[in-house]
Design a protein around this nucleic acid. Structure first.
Length: 223
DNA sequence: GCGACAG
DNA sequence: ATCTTGTCGC
């Protein structure tokens, strides 16, 4: 029996071609002038093949909660660095479809990816929505350490090109990795990231989505 | 060949 | 990502 979760049974060259195609379709300029609503998306995993995807929207820049949605999803692809989209794209698409917002913040890289097609960009291109990639860790590129004050940032570079920014959303706390997802400039992405993180390192929309997904997952485990 | 490697 | 209590620091 073929194990679909076994990385050895996957044609990574073919998936790389898909990612390069996605990268060519990414729009790096602002197609949203003044966003009034921002949503965050995330997924929580329980077992290998079961997870919960959540999306929560807020007013911007006031950050008042507007709407939320969470769904149970089947996972049919393993976690392989640089191929995260093939594991989380479908669940994200389903949950994003139910929540309306001007901009979507995704817990992953956007252009700050070896083939410039991280999950945030992939989702943006496929769903045709403005997205921002906000990751807790670096995938590729190099950058200097930003100042420890909140709001400071440095650019993440790879081969002389700026692919993202290392942003300090909280004083003396590890920075987040921000990059263009789709239909928004890097400057706008950084601005939105900072404005949606008034208190914690992780921007409120993503934080709320993560908490909702995790809560739903644990409710199913217990009850 | 070796190390790095979003979630 | 997830498994987990207390604990150090602003």
């Amino acid at each position: 029996m073929l194990d679909i979760l076994d990385p050895r049974n996957i044609d990574l060259d073919e998936l790389s071609r898909i990612q390069k195609d996605v990268a060519n379709k990414v729009i790096k300029e602002d197609r949203v002038s003044n966003p009034n609503t921002i949503a965050g998306c995330d997924i929580s995993f329980s077992e290998e093949e079961l997870a919960y995807a959540a999306c929560v929207s807020f007013t911007y820049p006031q950050l008042e909660k507007l709407d939320s949605e969470s769904i149970k999803v089947e996972i049919d692809f393993p976690y392989i660095p640089t191929f995260l989209a093939f594991r989380e794209l479908k669940p994200m698409l389903r949950v994003v479809k139910n929540i309306d917002a001007d901009v979507y913040m995704i817990d992953s890289q956007g252009l700050a990816h070896p083939r410039r097609a991280g999950l945030a960009s992939h989702l943006g291109v496929v769903a045709e929505i403005p997205t921002i990639g906000v990751a807790k860790n670096r995938l590729c590129g190099e950058a200097e350490e930003p100042d420890s004050e909140k709001g400071s940032y440095t650019y993440l570079r790879e081969n002389e090109q700026i692919i993202g920014a290392v942003v300090r959303t909280r004083k003396n706390v590890n920075p987040v990795y921000v990059s263009i997802g789709h239909k928004l400039s890097l400057e706008k992405a950084i601005e939105i990231t900072l404005k949606t993180a008034p208190k914690y390192k992780i921007p409120e929309p993503i934080r709320a989505a993560h908490k909702l997904a995790t809560r739903k997952m644990k409710e199913t485990r217990t009850g």
